[in-house]
Design a protein around this nucleic acid. Structure first.
Lengths: 116, 116
DNA sequence: CGGTATCCAAGAAGATACTG
DNA sequence: CAGTATCTTCTTGGATACCG
């Protein structure tokens, strides 16, 4: 296990760990939820994601999707149609986050107060 | 694996999953990093945490620690001394998050660009 | 030492209108 | 349909001063 206690973590050293790198890519109010959503639902269109996310604005969803696309965690496929048709799905890099998403999901299922 | 595709996720239903419950407890700019820090370093005092976190203000650290304490993810032990002496460490509930923390750490180690 | 209280600035996010 | 642009609002977070 990688969590034996170490007393050697120096100031500012935390920011050099893989831990912080992961956070830099998935932190943000909606990013992780979008990744989770796509991990469950597969390929989804812009407005399908928006509806499932509930109270999210166009702008915030656009920002989150662009950030995830720039980090190559999801792929964006635009069909040359009128009206426009854009689909998002997890990239292979995004799919490599599944262990993280699963761990988060499992913890919540077993620790939320009103668990079934 | 809990990530077979399901097409049954309805609008607003995402917020009822264990996934969202986990996020509600660990989201925030510093919470996860503090949990990770304590998972590595064990018991730490307020200013030790502050130094390791680098650029964090008293107020933000106080807020994060109080939030984590209220959610019973860490414990706060105050020694009746002058000057004050307060120690923080993961609670058993907090330790149950170790799989999540480990997953985040492992992904970062294997995916950050400058990984050795 | 380990906070709290106050004020202020910066960034995130919502609402709305408009576009290809 | 899937955005962009703009404006406004609101939440976070930082700086500072003070307290037990």
């Amino acid at each position: 296990m990688s969590n034996e206690f170490k007393d050697c973590l120096l100031p500012a050293e935390l920011s050099q760990t893989g831990f912080s790198y992961t956070l830099s890519e998935i932190s943000g109010k909606y990013k992780i939820e979008i990744l989770y959503l796509l991990s469950i639902q597969g390929t989804r269109r812009f407005n399908e994601i928006k509806r499932t996310m509930g109270a999210i604005s166009f702008k915030s969803l656009t920002n989150a999707l662009q950030g995830l696309t720039n980090d190559h965690l999801i792929t964006r496929h635009q069909f040359p149609e009128i009206p426009p048709h854009v689909e998002y799905q997890l990239s292979s890099r995004g799919k490599s986050l599944l262990p993280v998403l699963d761990a988060i999901c499992l913890w919540g299922e077993s620790h939320q107060p009103s668990a079934e």
